[in-house]
Design a protein around this nucleic acid. Structure first.
Lengths: 354, 354
DNA sequence: CTGAAAGCGCTTACAG
DNA sequence: CTGAAAGCGCTTACAG
């Protein structure tokens, strides 16, 4: 019986021996050099095929001092936002001939450290990093060093020094939240909450900023009880819903930190005997697939994570081409997707004051 | 200004030079050899730290003729089933010290070929492969060769020869569909469709087999119009819904190939003026997160893709430990998750005949 | 147009 | 306990 152990790897030397040329010549053929005589090339290529040669890119990379891997470090693929993002990254990297090295932090700074350390040993040409909450920029910098270019995605890094030496791709969180809030204002809401997220995350701060800006433009100052923090998960959101209604004036609508939180809010409202889209208006952020099928369908801010993934890959590839260019800050546009009934009119609200 | 180009990689030789020992000694320290004198070890470790040395695993792997990467080839991360699966794989591989090399086929045999060829050049220790629909086992075998162990997941490979020389992890599709169908039978349904999927995929065939078995046990022979094929996506499913009702006796319920199809069916029913969970019963397969928040929530067969990912990783790691063991066939258990009202009683159905 | 030689960063017998 | 030497599979000047 044949087993995998029976077969050692076919190398350039085997092929060279097999058709009576030097390893150098085989190497030139592999890399499509025009130096090789057509007849020789044909002989070598036939032998390559015959022996089933597989290029060892690792060995070649070692010699050439290059790398064909790009590390992608994200929170967790269970989150559809990151799954789509990863799909986009992988698609664009594969097209460019790079392989994606995957790493998940699970939003833990400690795991992020371990994952990055392990990935760095695989000598990635670059790193696409969506930092875990609470990441320290200085610490990451000293872990990663100056050799490997990094594209930071989604969350700004807290660094004690002000120098933004890494490329950064962010969503236009301010504008997104502004659109969402403006939409509710147009529908006639005046008492609008911002629900979910942690204040110390930059994306949450930015979304709150857009929310405040829209309210302020309408001459509204948010009440403290309209600002409710919670972990950005469905479960935590559902648990925090009652906080919205402990003090008057209670909100009639909420802009949510993200869709997961919005779905949790809907569930929590139901548990309190209220119905999203009837007694209370909800707008999300992200446009995850669930937003389409939730009851009611969720009006939300679309960030097109797959396109963002492709964009992130393009940015890191560009950086590999030109390592000495000044750091880039890119802000990806976002878009409001208005759906059915999650953004109910206040006329139908009990106790709504226009 | 410092740029990444300024910094060449720190190597063993630099560290050796820096503390006056040979490269061999530094290597022994790195690998925790007990041969090194404690005092020497301390000196070397200090120097390692001081210079910010990063291990080059690729170089070490080349020399040792081992590999620390495992390739994961799936359809697409946009599919939550595969995203969860990938998360599980990555989790278990990372724990074992392997890095995940990601590849997506987008369900195209041609792309699968290209992706595998590219990944093989990175010399993965093993491959976890969820084959694209229509994959040819022989062809994959000749592409991958005999050196790299493969764990096939989810979909059986069509090979002209009967030899099953690769490990295989499958879901218990037969039993899952049997549970789903049995559940509808218990609810009183007699005219039950099997909706969605392509007959030439092994998972679809197996699910249909379970469906038929359950019906047959209840003395029911399915009508031809109860078996509707379509691509396993929400959109295609929505388009095919009318096919269920073109001929009498029309079904009162459907077991769906998967949850995406079930959600599409729900949408399609709505478009026809019927309501899932009121006029028609729907059961899904996979238990994707949307199943919880759809309207109505979807009764479905849970396959726990994340746990399956961990399981797949464990299986390939086991194969790496023992390359010569006989091929394994593993069938993962599945479980029916009954939810709310997608599985309506036929008493409330117009024209239901008990 | 082709080959001999050196070297990428590491490890592994083999001496001492 | 430590070092000199060879070698993993490839590429790159350098001769010829």
């Amino acid at each position: 019986m044949m087993t995998s152990a029976d077969h050692r790897r076919i190398t350039l030397a085997d092929v060279a021996l097999g058709c009576g040329v030097s390893r150098a010549t085989v190497s030139l053929v592999l890399r499509g050099s025009p130096l090789v005589h057509a007849e020789t090339r044909a002989r070598v290529e036939a032998e390559l095929k015959r022996q089933g040669y597989v290029y060892n890119r690792g060995a070649a990379n070692l010699r050439r001092k290059v790398s064909s891997g790009v590390a992608l470090v994200i929170n967790d693929l269970s989150n559809p936002f990151f799954a789509e993002f990863a799909a986009g990254v992988d698609e664009a990297l594969a097209t460019a001939g790079y392989v994606t090295l995957l790493g998940s932090t699970g939003e833990s700074v400690e795991r992020q450290r371990a994952v990055l350390a392990s990935l760095l040993e695989h000598d990635p040409a670059g790193i696409i990093l969506s930092p875990a909450e609470g990441s320290d920029g200085e610490q990451l910098r000293s872990l990663i060093g100056a050799r490997t270019p990094v594209l930071v995605f989604n969350r700004e890094l807290q660094a004690r020094t002000g120098d933004a030496s890494w490329d950064f791709l962010s969503l236009d969180n301010v504008r997104g939240a502004q659109l969402a809030t403006g939409h509710l204002l147009e529908r006639g809401h005046r008492r609008i909450a911002f629900f979910g997220g942690h204040r110390d995350s930059s994306s949450c701060r930015q979304r709150r900023e857009g929310y405040r800006a829209a309210l302020s433009e309408a001459g509204i100052t948010p009440e403290p009880q309209w600002l409710v923090e919670c972990a950005p998960t469905r479960l935590e959101a559902a648990r925090q819903v009652s906080a919205l209604f402990v003090r008057d004036p209670a909100p009639t609508a909420a802009v949510c930190y993200n869709d997961a939180v919005a779905l949790g809010l809907m569930a929590g409202l139901a548990a309190l005997g209220r119905r999203a889209g009837q007694d209370f208006a909800v707008v999300g952020f992200d446009d995850i697939p669930e937003a389409t099928v939730s009851a009611p369908p969720l009006t939300t801010v679309a960030v097109d994570p797959r396109a963002r993934g492709r964009q992130a890959a393009e940015l890191i590839l560009q950086r590999l081409r030109d390592p000495d260019a000044a750091p880039h800050r890119t802000v990806a546009t976002v878009q409001l997707h208005v759906r059915a009934s999650s953004d109910v009119l206040p006329a139908s609200l009990p106790g709504a004051t226009p």
